[in-house]
Simulated scan of single mutants.
Amino acid sequence: MNPDEPLLLKPAGAYNYTTHIRSFSTRSSAMKIAITGARGTVGQKVVQICAQEGHETVQVNRTDQEYDGTPKSEMRTADAASDYDATLKAFKDCDAVIHLAAIPNPVGKPDWQVHQNNVQSAFNGFRACGELGIKKICYASSVNAIGLAYANQPLKFDYFPIDEEYPVNPTDSYALAKQEAETQAKAFVNWFPGTKIAMMRIHEVAPKDDVLQEHKEDWENAAVKQLWSWVHPDATARACLLAVTKSDNFEGCEIFNVVAPTTTQKTPSEQLAKKYYPDAKIKGDMSTSVSFWTYDKIERVLGWKHTEEE
């Protein structure tokens, strides 16, 4: 699944969130949060969890939409990639922005379109926040920022697990655009002092069983090239909200891996690494099905935990 892919939902209020979902937010003060790409898989979950935690939301999408019944929510229309003025208007009076809008993958799309759309969408979102004085920003980057699933050259990795300092090597339009968005964010926190931008390197967003099925159906592209990893939609939404509610815990721009702590496989990760990426150095204990990505930074800084096992 992709973050911008529509998700069928139960009516608002029908969700029975578990205790850990109810209690993860600081609840210190309610905010008004603009969410771009609010119709996407992650966007809809973010809207839900924001409402659950008592925040107001502004759901921003490229085309007009009817009110969906979410408490304390309103609908605004803006194509962040092509209409800066509409984006500025959509963010007006908001305290924070969770910026999810993007073309979700380069498959079957011209490279120029993917790159242009995603780079400009990031820029317009960051610049609008700067103009309006919005200091709390979450942006949906991707694990693909390092160069991964859509690479046009053979994948090589220096080491596992991959942390946020890993050297990037994009060879496709989608990865390049995400890496450039991260560069933009580092510039904008200096351009507008006091701004906090959390760049969330999100992995494939779907329940584990769905991702496992994709891995079985396309082992080389869906499993090997994506390092057998995944992240649950609910966990992703919590991470995005924590990025703005816990922004006092970091300065400037920070990159966070957003992944499940385990792979979809029962095979030990070290065994998979040695078979498919034998030149990569193994750092730490990968004798179990632990993720190929580190996740200690987001746990330490934002207090996020990926508790969903399926």
Rank of each mutant, 00 (worst) to 15 (best):
A51N: 15
G54E: 07
H55L: 04
H55A: 08
T57S: 15
T57A: 11
D64E: 15
Q65K: 15
D68N: 14
G69I: 10
G69V: 13
T70A: 15
M75A: 15
M75P: 11
D79V: 04
A80E: 09
S82T: 15
D85M: 09
D85C: 03
T87F: 11
F91I: 01
D93Y: 05
C94E: 07
V97N: 04
V97R: 02
I98N: 11
H99T: 02
L100E: 06
L100S: 04
A102S: 10
P104D: 09
P104S: 13
P104A: 11
V107G: 04
P110N: 14
D111I: 00
W112P: 02
H115D: 11
N117V: 10
N118P: 10
A122I: 02
C129M: 06
C129F: 05
L132K: 01
G133P: 00
I134G: 03
K135F: 00
K135D: 03
I137E: 06
Y139W: 08
Y139P: 09
I146V: 14
I146P: 01
G147F: 00
Y150N: 13
K156W: 12
Y159I: 01
I162N: 08
D163R: 11
E165L: 14
Y166K: 10
Y166P: 00
Y166D: 02
Y166V: 00
V168F: 05
T171P: 03
T171V: 12
Y174N: 06
